[in-house]
């Protein structure tokens, strides 16, 4: 699937989550931005995934409405971490990828906490992150399995040979 379409689909998912997010309360919030970055990190190269992440960065910041930049910095850390895992975890969107997504969510929160600790003491913001990261890690892990399957299905629809060895007859 071309990078631009991945970006548009991810953008739509995030925008719709913002619009209907109030239905599910503020306690158990899956972070779809992390799910998308886990997909990009595991399924795309550094360049293709990195460009998609760069294109999504500002929309994500706008949708989060948090302390500018730190959410994106966390996403970059997750992306780099996923690049290390690329090709080393289960191929389908199953349990192991869910666990990886949960870990990625914790890493994302820890990076945010680290940046806040080094830059300015937003004590209550930090308490909020430290409190919510645990439930969010579970919610995001589950959401990642869905997001990964949806994006993976779109990948296969647009590029059926992706990730498979296919014999070709060449003239």
């Amino acid at each position: 699937m071309p990078t631009l379409i991945v970006v548009v689909v991810a953008w739509l998912m995030l925008v719709v989550q913002g619009a209907v997010g109030g239905w599910f309360g503020e306690w158990l919030v899956p972070q779809l931005a992390i799910s998308v970055v886990v997909f990009l990190g595991l399924e795309r190269t550094m360049v293709a995934g990195g460009v998609a992440l760069l294109m999504l960065m500002w929309p994500v910041e706008w949708l989060v409405g948090g302390v500018g930049g730190i959410y994106s910095l966390g996403l970059v850390a997750v992306f780099f971490m996923m690049q290390l895992f690329r090709g080393r975890v289960q191929g389908s969107w199953g349990l192991s990828r869910g666990i990886v997504a949960g870990l990625a969510t914790l890493v994302h929160s820890l990076v945010m906490l680290l940046v806040l600790t080094l830059s300015e003491s937003g004590e209550r913001v930090m308490a909020s992150i430290a409190w919510q990261m645990w439930t969010s890690c579970v919610a995001t892990a589950l959401a990642t399995l869905v997001v990964g399957r949806v994006l993976g299905r779109l990948d296969r629809l647009m590029d059926p040979r992706r990730g498979r060895n296919v014999l070709e007859f060449r003239s």
């Binding site: 550094m46 360049v47 990195g50 460009v51 992440l53 760069l54 960065m57 500002w58 910041e61 302390v67 500018g68 930049g69 730190i70 994106s72 910095l73 996403l75 970059v76 992306f79 780099f80 940046v115 806040l116 830059s119 300015e120 937003g122 913001v125």
Partner: peptide, 19 residues
């Protein structure tokens, strides 16, 4: 790409109002 990924959030952070 890696440099841009690191720089863009840092610029966002530097130009934001913080907490």
């Amino acid at each position: 790409v890696a440099m841009a990924l690191l720089l863009v959030p840092l610029v966002m952070f530097a130009t934001s109002a913080g907490a």
